[in-house]
């Protein structure tokens, strides 16, 4: 009896294929890598040279925006991307086709998540490079380890949350709306697009409860000159990681390979069978 290929090999193949499919999809590339870059350029053009005031003190706009948008890119590449694409692939029957092969679920999803992490790495490196090259972004080498750990915790957690939420998105049609309706409003109260200066209490609470702001702030800390030391924000990281664990548990329960059997897929079946 011949052997199955090793999981490591399968994982590698899956990651590579997911990465190719992503980079060949224009829509995904634009929203994940293009749009945050446009925003980075825009915000710097509008507010460049200014300062932002956060509880720790006053620091330059480019440090704030590069950190915020880089973190946001990482979230787009994982959470937004998975919430968008998982329901589409589910309803198109692509997941069911994979289920027809001997690939283990963990390897299939593992490859997909690894690819999303790679996209996130590309996005963050792109943002930081633009920042350093054009906007006098300074990166404190002493804080680079904190930056990398924060990034790793954040993308993993948001990938899990993306999978979890994709599982409850009813069908492919509602996926893009579901992804954007959750992440965009949250971004406004999470120091991504605007530093919140004395916001209404309830907006502050929303920002603090959901994991985006803790992640964005933890990432910004590694670029914030008023934060001294290694730049690790342990509390925020633990909080984001807990959300990630919650996401993984929910994802385990909600993930399905089967297309949704709502009214739409029935009518589709009728159409097909004519």
């Amino acid at each position: 009896m011949t052997q199955f290929p090793s999981s490591a090999r399968l994982w590698f193949i899956q990651t590579r294929y997911q990465f190719f499919t992503f980079t060949r999809s224009k829509v995904g590339m634009f929203f994940t890598l293009g749009l945050p870059t446009v925003m980075l350029v825009l915000f710097n053009a509008l507010f460049g040279g200014g300062t932002v005031d956060t509880p720790g003190g006053s620091w330059s706009v480019q440090q704030f925006y590069t950190g915020g948008l880089a973190a946001f890119t990482a979230v787009s590449a994982t959470y937004t991307n998975l919430v968008n694409v998982v329901p589409i692939r589910r309803d198109e029957g692509i997941l069911k086709r994979w289920r027809s092969t001997p690939v283990p679920l963990g390897v299939y999803l593992g490859g997909w998540i690894t690819s999303a992490l790679l996209v996130a790495v590309c996005g963050v490196v792109l943002q930081l490079t633009i920042g350093v090259t054009f906007y006098d972004l300074t990166i404190d080498l002493a804080k680079v380890p904190a930056m990398m750990v924060t990034f790793a915790v954040g993308v993993t957690a948001f990938a899990m949350l993306g999978l979890a939420f994709a599982g409850v998105v009813p069908d492919a049609d509602s996926a893009p709306a579901a992804a954007n309706a959750t992440i965009l409003p949250l971004a406004f109260v999470s120091d991504v697009f605007i530093p919140l200066d004395n916001p209404p209490r309830w907006l502050e609470v929303i920002g603090d409860v959901f994991p985006l702001k803790p992640f964005v702030n933890a990432f910004q800390d590694t670029l914030n000159p008023t934060v001294t030391g290694s730049g690790f924000n342990a509390n925020a990281l633990i909080y984001v990681a807990l959300w990630g664990v919650f996401g993984a548990i929910v994802a385990r329960r909600t993930f399905t390979w089967e297309p949704s059997t709502g009214g739409r897929s029935r009518s589709r079946r009728r159409r097909r069978s004519r």
Partner: peptide, 19 residues
């Protein structure tokens, strides 16, 4: 059931076959 439309015929057979 669909196949990832971004792949080529050969690539899809390679990756599905790899399992």
């Amino acid at each position: 059931s669909a196949v990832e439309r971004e792949l080529t015929v050969r690539e899809s057979l390679n990756v599905y076959g790899s399992c």
